[in-house]
Amino acid sequence: MCTGAGSAVQRVFGLLGKRWTGMVIAALMGGPIHFADLRHAVPGITGRMLSGRLAELVATGVVVRNVDPGPPLRVSYCLTATGEALRPALVELGRWAEGHLPDGEGGAQS
């Protein structure tokens, strides 16, 4: 018998299933980081896309945005306690990928 995904699973993948979101969170797991450095830490993401993903993560309480006093004015981001609570799940997903996904591909191994 097939069962449907529960609403909690739908909510988590509604957030984490968006392109770049997992990579942004993974980059933030190293600690607070400025916007420009975060953009370099996530190769291929545009500034506009990064801004959008960060705004979404801030709105959901996963990330906090800090304005560093200037000059020059700089903005940094870090995970909240809620965001840090994702660490074990993301580490396990990484382990799963290492064991079950070939490098550079999205398909499963035979």
Rank of each mutant, 00 (worst) to 15 (best):
K18C: 07
V63C: 04
I45V: 14
T80W: 02
L50M: 08
G31V: 02
A89S: 10
T82I: 11
M23N: 08
S51H: 09
T21H: 12
G31I: 00
I25L: 15
G61D: 01
P43N: 08
D68S: 11
P69Y: 09
L28M: 03
P71K: 12
A89L: 14
V75Y: 10
S51R: 05
A26Y: 08
G14H: 04
I33K: 12
W20L: 08
M29I: 09
P43D: 10
L50Q: 10
L57P: 06
A36Y: 03
E84T: 13
G17S: 02
P88Y: 00
T21E: 03
R53A: 05
M29T: 11
R48S: 15
Y77F: 15
G83P: 01
A59S: 13
V58E: 12
A89C: 13
L28A: 03
P71W: 06
E84N: 08
A59I: 04
L38W: 02
L28I: 06
V67C: 09
S51V: 04
M29G: 13
L79H: 01
L57C: 09
L38Q: 03
V75C: 14
A8K: 15
V75T: 15
R39D: 10
M29P: 07
V75S: 15
A27W: 00
A27S: 13
F13Q: 10
A55Y: 09
S7F: 11
G83K: 00
G61Q: 02
L79K: 01
P71I: 08
P32Y: 03
I25N: 01
G44D: 06
V75Q: 15
R87Q: 07
F13A: 10
L79I: 05
R87D: 02
L15C: 12
N66H: 10
P72I: 09
G6R: 11
V91T: 00
E56K: 13
M49V: 14
L15S: 03
T60G: 10
V63N: 05
V24Y: 01
V67Q: 15
A81N: 08
F13C: 09
I33L: 15
P71E: 14
R11L: 12
S76P: 06
A85V: 03
L54M: 08
A81F: 08
R39S: 13
A27M: 05
V24C: 00
G17T: 01
K18Q: 14
E56Q: 12
R48Q: 15
V75G: 14
A89W: 01
A26Q: 10
V62H: 01
F13V: 11
P43R: 14
C78N: 08
T82R: 09
L57S: 05
P32A: 15
G83M: 00
A26L: 12
L15Q: 05
T21Q: 08
A85L: 14
A36F: 04
R74Q: 15
V9D: 01
D68R: 09
M29R: 05
I33G: 09
D68V: 14
G61K: 01
D68W: 03
R11S: 07
K18A: 08
Y77K: 07
T80Q: 03
V58I: 11
M29K: 03
G47P: 12
T82Q: 11
G47Q: 07
L57Y: 04
G70P: 11
R39Y: 04
K18G: 10
P72R: 07
V62E: 00
V24S: 02
P43W: 05
R11N: 04
R19I: 07
G61V: 02
R39P: 14
R53E: 06
